[in-house]
């Protein structure tokens, strides 16, 4: 599987054009009146097959809202979001809320296949076993429940879950922020491995600039719902143009 997308002229799997996303927010503490706020402003970018693109910004700038809009969770928007034929899946931020505590790991991983309904029982079992090995865990984990796993193990399961339906794009929202430092490395390496071996594109959302640099080839910087700068990793990190980017970089690197 080549990861350069030499499959034809158009290997773009996601195109976002002039996206404005809105969100209803309650005004008073007790009244049910609400105000429609604009969270994303004129966002445009694309992602090509096999790329790892980073999205950095501080909390509240709209990164998660962008993810939700692309996936169709948030529906109040103007502009266009075009997926290729294959879908997108998400790896959530909090490994402690993203797995159903009442079910076993095996059940959780099989569920998307059950819903899809295309495979037979043994085919499903086989795919689940393959997937759990792919993320570095053995099949004994299938019988366990999420609360028996560590943060790093849970995140591996979340990644496996996102891959079950073979999406072309994974949106990872702060995938390592809640993990211990020594474990972050392993998960990042896992994401890199999956990207290289399966050709899956990743939209890597994080507030941590160093982590984004370590795995992404292209980077977008977001502030207050705008993408203020985007370019290759070297361009954005070594020769930033926008003052906000420079400010972010200086607080991380210098002192």
């Amino acid at each position: 599987m080549n990861d350069n997308g030499n499959k034809g002229t158009d290997n773009t799997i996601l195109t976002v054009s002039h996206l404005n996303t809105y969100y209803r927010e309650k005004t008073g503490r007790f009244s049910s009146a609400s105000v429609r706020r604009q969270v994303l402003k004129d966002v445009s970018f694309d992602i090509k097959q096999g790329e790892i693109v980073g999205l950095v910004g501080e909390s509240g700038c709209g990164k998660s809202t962008l993810a939700k809009t692309i996936l169709g969770i948030v529906k109040d928007y103007e502009g266009t979001v075009e997926h290729g034929s294959a879908g997108a899946q998400m790896v959530f931020q909090d490994p402690y809320g993203s797995l159903n505590p009442a079910k076993t790991v095996g059940w959780i991983l099989e569920e998307p296949l059950r819903i899809q309904g295309k495979l037979t029982d043994p085919e499903r079992d086989e795919r689940v076993a393959r997937m759990i090995n792919l993320v570095g865990l053995d099949e004994s984990y299938l019988k366990r429940k999420p609360n028996e796993l560590s943060g790093g193990q849970r995140q591996r399961i979340c990644i496996a879950l996102a891959l079950m339906l073979r999406p072309r794009l994974i949106i990872a929202d702060e995938p390592v922020s809640a993990l211990d430092v020594t474990v972050q490395d392993q998960i990042l390496k896992l994401l890199l491995k999956l990207n290289r071996e399966l050709g899956i594109a990743i939209l890597f959302i994080s507030h941590d600039l160093k982590v984004v640099y370590s795995v992404c080839s292209r980077v977008m910087v977001m502030k207050d719902g705008h993408i203020v700068e985007q370019g290759s990793d070297e361009e954005v990190y070594k020769s930033p143009k926008h003052p906000y980017t420079k400010q972010l970089l200086s607080s991380v690197l210098g002192d």
Binding site: L71, I73, Q89, M90, F92, Q93, G97, P112, Q116, M164
Partner: peptide, 13 residues
């Protein structure tokens, strides 16, 4: 509103 429910929705449940 927990993530695992969002996840299930994304899977098409």
């Amino acid at each position: 509103n927990l993530d695992y429910v969002q996840s299930a929705r994304l899977m098409g449940a």
